[in-house]
Design a protein around this nucleic acid. Sequence first.
RNA 1: GCGCCUGUAGCUCAUCUGGAUAGAGCAUCGGAUUUCUAAUCCGAGGGUAAUAGGUUCGAGUCCUAUCAGGCGCACCA
Length: 570
Amino acid sequence: MKNIIKDLIKESLYKINKDKNISIENIEVNLCKDKKFGDFSSNVAMRYSHVYDAKPKVFAEEIIKGIKEDKNILKIEVAGPGFINFFVSKGSQFEIIETILDQEQKYGKNKIGSGVKVLIEFVSANPTGPLHVGHGRGAAFGDCLSNLLKENDYDVVKEYYVNDAGKQIDILTLSVLQRYHELIDENYKFEYQDLYKGDYVWDIAAEIHRNYGNDFFIKDLIKYTDKLVDHYILNIKNKFSDEKFKKIKDISVKFILENIKKTLNLSDINFDSWFLESSLVNNNNLKDIIDYLNKNNNTYTKDNAVWFKSKELGDEKDRVLIKENKDHTYLSTDIAYHKNKITRKFDRVINIWGADHHGYVPRINGAFNIFSEGKSELIILLVQFANLYRGKEKVSMSTRSGDFVTLEQLLKEVGKDATRFFYLARKSDQHMDFDIELAKSNDSNNPVYYIQYAHARICSIFKQLEENKMFFNYQKEHLELLSKEEELSIVKKLSSYPDVIKKSTEKYEPHLLTNYMRELAQEIHSYYNKFQILVEDEDLRNARLALMEASKNVLMNSSKIIGIKMPNKM
RNA sequence: GCGCCUGUAGCUCAUCUGGAUAGAGCAUCGGAUUUCUAAUCCGAGGGUAAUAGGUUCGAGUCCUAUCAGGCGCACCA
């Protein structure tokens, strides 16, 4: 209907010879908030009156005069400062029910992204410990965004970047090694502040001891400790062979990755690709990257280090690529990683990062543009952290002490559906408070149950129908019997669903969809309370059932995108 | 100190890329069930959109300043 109106306006503009500066994409037509203004409204006259040096109201009148008759449009009028309001026939609005019942799972999908390859990288938490509640938001967000992109027919690859190289992993290895010694001989107990302290470190140490006995035991380990963690690592590496150190490292990373995958599975998140940082470090990639930047005049040498000229790309200052000691920095591998993404020929590359990384955006953006040469687009989306509450009480989260709520604990306590929904219900770049008590509650406080209940109620109607030996025998003509305000309101809501999908995707804002679901559920509950659906009149009954079936369909389609269940019974 | 983000009802948040009278939920108060699930519905109160200017037909939305909060400012990852 919206598009019909857009076409009518465009045609009119052409007729009055004022279409040159207004393309059809720029004609905005919206559902009216208040029905006294009609069903649809457009602001073209106000928006473009200055182009033709006309008063908005006069311009609007002119446009209306040029609009040809259409069987669906009952009345058009100018209102307020120059809105053009359209009053539309009921019949034309209820037609959407037919469309929804026809398209089923396809309703809401579109082809905007056909043939566009998108890589979406998210979570990518360091494999140095289990996922915590902060990661959960990015995980839900990335997964839902992937679903949305697929709904728009984009070709999506979901990737997890595993930081399995570098210092943090060495520190993890050291942590495991130390616990391993404590397991074997309690005299080895000593505190070292910079090491990882969570229980999972003990678990890994125990597993190693189970499988390898005392193979990695160093008799006088204490002699090799050093206040500087770098030296400590070096000492151990020297004491062990490289293979021995790597063995512990590999076991530890594998252990933690399995734990991470398990947690993600609990949340119904599956990645298509696990990209290892180590795969970039182990070959000549890095050297090639630096050489290329060199040739391109993007680097210089100062204080025996190689610097990336990121300042001229919008960064606060230049950054080191190769340290004085010839080690590469994290930035160089990250540039290599993004170069690799470009090599894989993605049209769009989406990174979902924690908001604390925002300072890192300009340098990666800059590097990306050097390598992509405009053939690929990088979009970095920042997800704010979530504060965890139990009712009024804030749950403290300190990673250092190992005293934090893991995502796994949260999922087990709250459940997958509520967890995902709560994470997604807020704008991602906005701080949020996640109340565990609220998410767990199974009463009206909880929007998840509210929405699921609407679905279950509709299912229950159809069950009742069957039990009463009646059948859903819908025909298109029945729709004309729908006349209640509430029915029209639901239908309008249903017809806006494809727009919601489009918009949530374009803006990368899944919360628009969760809001929509809540609003739709509300209309359904309201209607259910006010009107009987299984009425005597067979035709009216079928019409109302068709409306309910269509609503159920939309709830189901949207719930799949959010990633929550829609139970038939509650 | 510099940079980025945020400030909307007592609380948690929306506001459809600048539109008509700023909306929901929770909390508070009052009502609804012999009828398809009351995990529901209906109604009421509650606002200087942090503050002050500016841009225009029109500003919570864009610009500037101030105040308050979060985050970031490594040859760490």
